[in-house]
Amino acid sequence: MENIIVITGASSGIGQATAKLFAQKSWQVIATMRNTEHQSELKKYDNIKLLTLDVTNNASIVKAKERILEQYDHIDVLFNNAGFAINGLFESTTNLQVHAQFETNVFGLMSVTRIFLPVFRSQHNGLIINTSSMGGRITFPLLSLYHASKFAVEGFSESLSFELSSQNIRVKLIEPGSTITDFSGRSMEIVDGNDLYDYRDFMMRYRQSRKNYLNSPRSSAEDVAKQVFLAATDNSPKMRYVIGNDAISYIKFRTANGADESIQQIKKQFNIK
């Protein structure tokens, strides 16, 4: 019986790299995204099926699930990967932006999970892998909405794992650090807070310090995909898969020294008074 994985947000970055890797490992991949029209890369694989799925639209999720079940009699793994980040001063954000951040990263992930859970229950097995981030365990400046959404994913996933264990369904978390993808491009929305002059000193210090951070080594999307594959196949009770030296270092420091020391470390790194 072939192994089948459903991936959301597969149009680029981690989602696309994961789809390719699983296809190369002879899995049947259902790669979903909001728009499949311009997706040429994944069409090269015979064992990748492209489907339209918008995680913020329940009707779209239900339709995608129905189309999958018309062709396949089971699903082994659901990889909730769709997401984006809003970057900027919280005071400059709008309610629309706040809601959009959570609609995709949290409520969309929850909706996909809820709609696909009956499939796993009927099978009496399955695995849900959620893309979190080191930003679900530690925080950086100007990403308050993104961190809030990823902290929510962490709490949701961990608590959900208790009830789903009764159905022989597992939940795992992928926690990448800084990754070489288009995350800072089309997957990140920049909020312009230039009109808030009181933040000028803070922003100047942050921007100068951020250059050093951006020049530090980063993981590739393929590095993350390898850990997704490990999570899907290692049959272990391990829940969190931390990827990248930066993520490992930051999370290890916070675990060993506590939240207060970790916050002071970040403030020092970004020259924040």
Rank of each mutant, 00 (worst) to 15 (best):
I174Y: 04
V29M: 06
A225G: 05
F116Q: 00
G244V: 03
A100V: 10
F229K: 04
K252V: 05
Y146V: 00
L173G: 07
V242R: 09
A17F: 01
A59W: 08
N80Y: 06
V224E: 04
A225M: 05
I174L: 12
S216W: 02
E158N: 12
N245Y: 08
I129Q: 06
L51S: 03
E158Y: 13
K211G: 03
I75E: 07
V55I: 06
G193C: 08
S11R: 11
V119Q: 11
D201L: 11
K226D: 13
S216Y: 02
N58W: 00
N47I: 06
G15D: 02
S216K: 01
D234E: 15
A59E: 15
M110K: 01
T8H: 00
M110Y: 00
V224H: 05
A19V: 01
E91F: 04
T8A: 00
I263V: 08
E189K: 08
M33F: 06
E2H: 10
N58Q: 09
L21Y: 04
G193F: 13
Q269W: 09
S262N: 15
Y241V: 07
A31N: 01
R137D: 12
L164E: 10
G15S: 10
R254S: 08
N130H: 09
R121C: 13
N95W: 05
S159M: 02
T36Y: 04
T56K: 14
F120D: 10
I115H: 14
A100N: 15
T181Q: 12
I61K: 00
I248P: 04
S159P: 00
A64S: 10
G185S: 14
I75S: 08
G136S: 13
L214W: 07
E2Y: 13
P217D: 06
L42A: 02
N194V: 13
I48V: 13
A10V: 02
Y146A: 01
M1H: 10
R218A: 08
V98H: 04
G193I: 06
D234V: 03
Y206H: 11
V6P: 06
Y197Q: 15
F90T: 06
D192A: 05
